[in-house]
């Protein structure tokens, strides 16, 4: 898959970092403003998809095979499961227990384990959508050989 013209490449170099930072902002403030893990994760994946579309198929070394992004996705789901199980060990013996201190409403470090859940679900959603797109790109490359 070829890349696009010089104007698109220069604009993508300027914009892609801002899109990634905006996605991280939406994930991190998921318990204060609308958004959360799912929306922020898809925006972070969008930053990578934008760069792959603009620069062509030989952008990262991830495009040869998709094991890099699958590793991130599986690790993130494993950590979400471990966080959920940790509620069993820390007292009240129910699954998915919110046991860390809650803090004051409206601060960035509040709401117990909710920011941790948001971050790891966001990483998992971003890696999933990136893997789906990479599988598509690799299929097209193999066919056109």
């Amino acid at each position: 898959m070829k890349g696009m013209s010089v104007i698109v490449k220069k604009t993508t170099q300027l914009v892609a970092g801002l899109v990634f930072l905006y996605g991280v902002y939406i994930i991190a403030h998921g318990h204060l403003t609308p958004g959360g893990g799912f929306a922020g994760g898809v925006v972070v994946a969008g930053a990578f998809i934008l760069q792959i579309l603009a620069f062509g198929s030989d952008f990262l070394n991830l495009v040869k095979e998709e094991t890099g992004s699958t590793l991130f996705e599986n690790l993130a789901v494993l950590i979400v499961l471990l966080l959920a199980v940790s509620g069993l060990l820390a007292g009240a013996s129910i699954f998915l227990h919110n046991w860390m201190p809650k803090g004051t409403v409206g601060e960035l470090l509040s709401a117990g384990m909710l920011p941790l859940y948001n971050i790891f679900v966001g990483i998992e959603v971003a890696a999933s959508i990136l893997t789906i797109f990479l599988a598509l790109v690799i299929f097209k490359e193999e066919i056109s050989k």
Binding site: G30, H31, L32, T33, P34, G36, A84, F95, L96, N98, K102, G103, V105, G106, S110, A111, G112, M113, L114, Y117, N118, V121
Partner: peptide
């Protein structure tokens, strides 16, 4: 839950199994 966003509180705390 301690969170200001009610929908995030419902998703991750009250209904964590669905997530």
């Amino acid at each position: 839950t301690g969170s200001a966003n009610l929908v995030t509180g419902v998703i991750f705390d009250f209904r964590g199994y669905d997530t």
